[in-house]
Simulated assay, not measured.
Amino acid sequence: MSPLGTGDLRRIFENLDKNGDGQVSLEELNWLLEKIGIHHSLGELELSIGKPSLDFDEFLFFYDSISSEETMRSGGVESRESSGGDVNQETDLAEAFKVFDLNDDGFISCDELQSVLSKLELWDERSGRDCNSMIRAYDTNNDGKLDFEEFKSMMSITIS
Rank of each mutant, 00 (worst) to 15 (best):
57 D>K: 15
118 S>K: 06
58 E>N: 08
93 L>I: 13
139 D>P: 08
114 Q>D: 00
82 S>H: 02
159 I>A: 04
109 S>G: 00
103 N>R: 01
113 L>K: 13
92 D>P: 05
39 H>W: 00
21 D>R: 11
25 S>T: 15
25 S>H: 05
131 C>W: 03
101 D>K: 00
137 A>M: 13
54 L>I: 06
74 S>D: 01
19 N>K: 13
37 G>W: 01
94 A>V: 10
90 E>R: 15
59 F>A: 10
89 Q>T: 15
64 D>E: 05
106 G>N: 02
142 N>E: 11
43 G>V: 00
21 D>K: 13
109 S>V: 02
88 N>D: 10
21 D>G: 14
14 E>Y: 12
141 N>M: 00
23 Q>C: 07
8 D>E: 15
121 E>F: 13
61 F>H: 14
32 L>F: 11
119 K>T: 11
81 E>D: 11
25 S>R: 05
80 R>W: 00
139 D>I: 03
40 H>E: 01
95 E>H: 06
80 R>C: 03
112 E>P: 02
76 G>L: 04
1 M>P: 07
92 D>S: 14
24 V>E: 03
47 L>G: 04
100 F>H: 03
118 S>V: 00
91 T>D: 02
90 E>H: 14
55 D>F: 10
78 E>A: 02
144 G>I: 02
1 M>L: 07
55 D>L: 09
4 L>E: 10
108 I>Q: 03
136 R>H: 15
